[in-house]
Each structure stands twice: as structure tokens, then as C-alpha cells.
């Protein structure tokens, strides 16, 4: 315990070097900044209304925040916490991805059934693409050619050609898809379905279903096992899947699609972010208003950190 003040003073002395996890608090209109070295909240920054999706520019000089109820994407200077400007985002932006070109944000407009493409340099809307109802999950392939939007009520992954802004495939998944990620250099697409309780794995080349991952936690009713966010380790051999109100994170072998174990975390676990060497995983726990820190090697929770009300998104600032 004597170490903690020491770390704290270090981080105060050299704030630029400190690695941080930024967590959006949906019902506090704030971001809690967690110092990865001390595992303490070092500051709380005000945002627009109902902040959810959060991501940094490639050089980490800017942070983009979906301020859903302000109907805007805010662009913040992470050094000062000042809002530099707002981007036109379409109504109710919930989640987004930054294209590998570091310039275009692809935004899911949850209330409007569209995906909006915004040029962050010219600050203009480049395109709006009609998708299913309540778009939420967003992913971009590593080569930047495909963007995925999942729609919660239409229960589909929509495959968008980033050149033409046209949908080239629409694939059904189980009920209420929430999150999507490309794995293995873009060969696979994973989509979680909250109410369906599954993760569907697609072969990207053919857009066909390749596997479906189910979950079964002893002592927890299957209805409460609701997959949402997920993250993969540096070697891509292991995926961690947040399972919502079951209060567990599943550890999945990405080669066999088998669930290896379940880690108990806070209540209604939602999204996650790794630190830079991916030795620690930070989960946002919406209902308990905290963040669980998981030791990735030991697959064990090591600390719970109190943040704001209804923490939603998480992003690393190295």
C-alpha cells in the first residue's frame, strides 16, 4: 500500500508518460481516466450528453467521443480535456470505428437506422448508408475495404464496401447483435448477439457462417448470459467475451471456438480495453458502476475500480 502514493506522485510528475484507460460514463456525462500503473482514477472529464463509444486517433493526439444524446461526436484534446470541435454525426451516434486511413469515422446512428461516414479533417458527412434498425456494432477490416454495422432489432451484420458505400451483403445473426470485430488479419468476422446469447463467426471471403459460440455458466440462467463486447489477445489465440448481466467474462480459444473458462467481474459487463502490452484487461461494468481489472496471464480479476454511473466504452491511451 505504501507503493500507491509513490506511483501517484510519479504519474503526477510525468503525466505524459503515464498509460491510461479512458472510460465513458453513460449516465454521468463524464470520462473517468484510469492510470494503468496505479489502477486509480486520476481525473474525471466532462463530455456531452450520454457518452458511449470512445476511440483515439492513431497518434493519440485526439479522442473521439460519441455524445449520443447531444447528437454529435466530440473531438477532445486528451492533454487538456478541452473539446476542440464537434463533428456532424447524424442523430444518436452510439458506436463508431476509425478507418485505418485515420481520417474517416464510421458511425452507427442508433435512432436513425443509418451508418454515417464523417471526414474528420473537412468535418463533413461523406455518406449516410441505410442499415437495419438500431445499428450499434461497428468494425472495419484491417485493409480498410469492409466496414460492418450490426443492427440490434434487424438482427443482421451489414457488410459495407468502403469504396462505394454500398451494402454488398446482409447476414442474419441471433437476436440483438451488439459488437463486431475482424480477427486473423481480416479473415474472420466475429459478431456477438446479446439476447441470442451467442457469438457468430463468419468467413469474410464468403460472408458465410463458420461457427457459433455458445456459453454456459454454472449457476447462471442462460437468459442472463448476454454477450456484448469482446477483445482478443496480442497473439489472437484467445478472446475475452463480456457476458452482460451474467457478470462474467468468457475466455475463448479462437482456433477451436471452445470456451475455456469464465471470470467473475462486476455487474452487467459491457465493453473492454487492454493496456499496451495486453497484460491487463479493463472491463466496464454498467450496473455496478465500476471497472474490473483482469490479469490476462492468470485469467483472474485483480482489482475493482469505482468510476462514474453506467460505464460503457473503454479505450487505451498509451
Amino acid at each position: 500500500m505504501r507503493l500507491a502514493p509513490l506511483f501517484l506522485s510519479l504519474s503526477l510528475a510525468a503525466p505524459l508518460a503515464a498509460e491510461e484507460i479512458w472510460v465513458t460514463n453513460e449516465k454521468d456525462d463524464t470520462i473517468s481516466v484510469i492510470d494503468v500503473a496505479t489502477l486509480e482514477v486520476t481525473r474525471t472529464i466532462s463530455t456531452g450528453e450520454r457518452p458511449r463509444g470512445i476511440t483515439f486517433s492513431r497518434d493519440f493526439s485526439r479522442v473521439y467521443i460519441c455524445a449520443s444524446d447531444s447528437d454529435t461526436v466530440q473531438v477532445m484534446d486528451p492533454e487538456t480535456g478541452q473539446i476542440l470541435f464537434d463533428l456532424p454525426s447524424g442523430e444518436d451516434p452510439e458506436q463508431f470505428v476509425l478507418h485505418p486511413d485515420d481520417r474517416h469515422l464510421w458511425i452507427a446512428n442508433e435512432d436513425d437506422a443509418v451508418t454515417t461516414v464523417v471526414d474528420t479533417q473537412s468535418r463533413t458527412v461523406v455518406a449516410q448508408i441505410d442499415v437495419g434498425i438500431e445499428p450499434e456494432g461497428m468494425a472495419v477490416s484491417p485493409d480498410g475495404r469492409i466496414v460492418i454495422t450490426t443492427s440490434e432489432t434487424t438482427n443482421m451484420a451489414h457488410w459495407i464496401d468502403t469504396e462505394t458505400h454500398e451494402l454488398f451483403a446482409n447476414t442474419l445473426v441471433d437476436a440483438r447483435p451488439r459488437h463486431a470485430e475482424f480477427l486473423h488479419d481480416g479473415a474472420e468476422l466475429w459478431v456477438s448477439s446479446e439476447i441470442g446469447g451467442t457469438v457468430t463467426v463468419f468467413d469474410v471471403a464468403t460472408q458465410t457462417e463458420k461457427a457459433k459460440i455458445g456459453f454456459d455458466i454454472r449457476g447462471v440462467h442462460p437468459d442472463r448470459v448476454q454477450p456484448v463486447g469482446f477483445e482478443v489477445t496480442a497473439d489472437e489465440k484467445t478472446a475475452f467475451v463480456a457476458l452482460g448481466p451474467s457478470n462474467h467474462v468468457a475466455v475463448v480459444d479462437t482456433a477451436t471456438y471452445e470456451v475455456k473458462e469464465y471470470i467473475l467481474v462486476g455487474r452487467r459487463v459491457w465493453h473492454m480495453a487492454f493496456n499496451s502490452d495486453k497484460s491487463l484487461l479493463f472491463t466496464t461494468n454498467g450496473v455496478s458502476g465500476d471497472v474490473t481489472v483482469i490479469d490476462v496471464a492468470r485469467r483472474a480479476p485483480v482489482k475493482t475500480i469505482k468510476v462514474g454511473r453506467f460505464p460503457w466504452g473503454a479505450a487505451l491511451r498509451p
Binding site: 456532424p88 454525426s89 447524424g90 436513425d112 458527412v125
Partner: peptide
């Protein structure tokens, strides 16, 4: 933004 929404 309203404009855009209507168009969509």
C-alpha cells in the same frame, strides 16, 4: 443534422 435525417 435534421436535414440529413429527413433525407435518410
Amino acid at each position: 443534422m435534421k436535414q440529413l435525417a429527413r433525407c435518410a
